[in-house]
């Protein structure tokens, strides 16, 4: 019977036990064990108490605030991310490399620094605030500030998922479409868009997930008023500070479930991107 390459590899390559042992032990201790502790804590609540905490007006308000701001930030990020990815892959212009490097700044910059910077920029006497406040646009200590913080911290996601796909898209397909008389927008809508769509959706999902979980940047700029500018992460933090651990556990479990759901969605979308790449 012919051996498959994987069977052969498994026999020849040493270190399976060692690498698996390290990986699984570490993963169990650092990632799984705390999650189990959290699950036990939440399960000890009982369904009725759990429901009461999760549907309390202040909790519901925090869900609404977090979701709306994250959605708005993600929509802006989808447009800006697509624009950045397009310009970086399609044109040569002075400053292109600098722009390419700068796109990762929100990942490299600690969220507390981002929050401090944003609130200073948008304060009434700040570099941006002094022009926006006279127009009646309040960003610092307002819902718009939450959106701004979420937008900033997740700028790289859409760019970095769409960029490689756009780079790999072979020029001759577009060339062919053009020579057959397609207009530029037709080339984009019918040739390019279907190819980049899975990557684009994966990127926006990641940006959305990050926005929902963002804490550091938001707390500096949000004003943190209960029912108005209090995000769910902050409400969890406040409950922990009050030693109200059941409430913190219940709220954290909601965020955790949302994170798992979005992680699952991202993974399925990325599997699709890979399938597309292999087909070429």
């Amino acid at each position: 019977m012919p051996m498959t390459s994987l069977q052969r590899r498994r026999r020849v390559m040493p270190g399976f036990g060692l690498s698996m042992g390290i990986a699984l032990t570490y993963f169990a201790l650092i990632v799984l064990l705390p999650l189990v502790a959290m699950a036990i804590k939440t399960a000890s609540l009982g369904w009725e108490d759990y429901w009461k905490i999760v549907t309390a007006p202040r909790s519901l308000a925090s869900f609404r605030i977090t979701l709306t701001a994250a959605l708005a930030a993600t929509v802006v990020n989808a447009v800006v991310g697509l624009l950045f990815a397009w310009v970086l892959t399609r044109y040569r212009f002075p400053g292109r490399r600098l722009l390419d490097a700068l796109v990762d700044l929100p990942f490299a910059l600690p969220t507390a620094v981002a929050g401090l910077t944003l609130v200073t920029l948008f304060a009434p006497n700040g570099w941006f605030g002094r022009y926006l406040e006279p127009l009646g646009i309040k960003v610092a200590y307002a819902p718009l500030g939450i959106m701004a913080a979420m937008f900033f911290t997740s700028i790289p996601f859409v760019v970095r998922t769409v960029q490689p796909v756009l780079e790999d898209l072979s020029a001759d397909v577009e060339e062919a479409a053009r020579s057959l008389g397609a207009r530029p927008w037709q080339v984009f809508a019918l040739v390019i868009w279907p190819v980049i769509l899975p990557a684009f959706l994966a990127g926006t999902t990641m940006a959305f997930a990050r926005s929902i979980g963002e804490f550091g940047a938001v707390v500096f700029i949000a004003g943190n008023l209960p029912m108005v500018t209090e995000i769910t992460s902050l409400l969890i933090f406040i409950r922990l500070d009050e030693f109200n651990y059941p409430a913190a556990a219940a709220l954290a479990s909601v965020l955790l479930l949302v994170a798992f759901l979005l992680l699952f969605l991202t993974n399925s979308l990325q599997a699709r991107v890979l399938r597309h790449a292999r087909r070429d």
Partner: peptide
Amino acid sequence: IPFSVSPIV
């Protein structure tokens, strides 16, 4: 997982 979980969580 750690990448997708809120830091507060």
